[in-house]
């Protein structure tokens, strides 16, 4: 029999990887989440999660940290990306590198360094745990917010700005009515790239405070105590939150595609 090569066959290695390391573990997680120690199907784990003050508190605290981190990142990144996009292509790219460069340095090294600096400034980190966590998170995630915003803003056609001015819009109006709405896709992808990881990023808290008071480390602490059931429940809850956020942001990216169709017509 003659062997014919299909392009589809190139996907086999990844399909195997997907099956072994994504789908099977996910099934295992789902199995553990909906069973109790005796192996019977049960929703007790979920009930327990929402009844325990510790777990719900961690969930809320994680969400608050993620929200504040995302908001601050957005506030810093938007003007930065806007200015960078206005400096003209060449110098803009060079300046952008300055903001993205820290990403190339080892993560633990960066956080350790930041921790030392904060200790130097504050004397003892214990006084402002929330603020310090946020500072570290923002420092860590800022480039992920700047990049998509910069990309969207550089692609924004100047003629929209000119058209708005032409129709009588002052600078503030031009920004609020044209630039901001047109950069929504960039904002959405920046927010997704910062919000989701910052909700589960336990390395920062772990390194700065040895704390497990965040979703990611909560899972870790259950699993390291061999409590597969409760750990799985938290994983599933996080997964659901991620699904909801992704679904929302996808709606915006679809709008973005429609915009690009207009671009093709022009």
């Amino acid at each position: 029999m003659k062997y014919t090569f299909h392009r589809k066959q190139l996907a086999i290695p990844y399909a195997i990887f997907l099956l072994l390391f994504v789908i099977l573990p996910l099934l295992v997680v789902i199995f553990y989440a909906f069973t109790n120690e005796e192996g019977h199907v049960s929703f007790h784990n979920f009930v327990a999660f929402f009844q325990s003050g510790k777990t719900v508190g961690t969930l809320l605290y994680s969400i608050v940290i993620a929200l504040v981190t995302t908001a601050i990142c957005l506030l810093i990144a938007y003007p930065t990306a806007y200015i960078l996009s206005k400096t003209g292509m060449k110098s803009g790219d060079a300046l952008l590198l300055l903001f993205v460069l820290p990403m190339w340095i080892n993560f633990t090294l960066r956080i350790t360094a930041l921790k030392e600096i904060l200790t130097l400034l504050e004397g003892n980190l214990a006084f402002h745990p929330f603020a310090n966590t946020i500072i570290c998170m923002v420092y860590d995630f800022l480039p992920f917010m700047i990049m998509p915003l910069y990309n969207t803003l550089t692609k924004l056609d100047d003629s929209y700005v000119e058209a708005a001015q032409d129709l009588g819009a002052k600078k503030s109006h031009v920004f609020l009515k044209v630039i901001l709405p047109l950069s929504v896709p960039g904002i959405v992808s920046g927010v997704t790239m910062v919000f989701l990881p910052s909700m589960t990023n336990y390395v920062v808290l772990d390194m700065v405070y040895n704390s497990t008071f965040i979703m990611g480390s909560l899972i870790g602490s259950y699993f390291s105590a061999y409590d597969w059931h409760n750990g799985s429940v938290i994983s599933i809850i996080l997964l659901l939150i991620i699904c909801v956020i992704t679904a929302i942001s996808n709606r915006y990216t679809e709008n973005d595609k429609a915009d690009r169709r207009v671009g093709a017509l022009k």
């Binding site: 056609d157 929209y160 000119e162 058209a163 001015q165 002052k170 047109l182 709008n255 429609a258 022009k266």
Partner: peptide
């Protein structure tokens, strides 16, 4: 005088209609 203060309007080459 900035464009927004001129009693002049433009039809741009690529129309520049606001896609949003």
């Amino acid at each position: 005088l900035p464009p927004n203060e001129r009693p002049i309007n433009t039809v741009f080459q690529k129309y520049a209609l606001f896609p949003h």
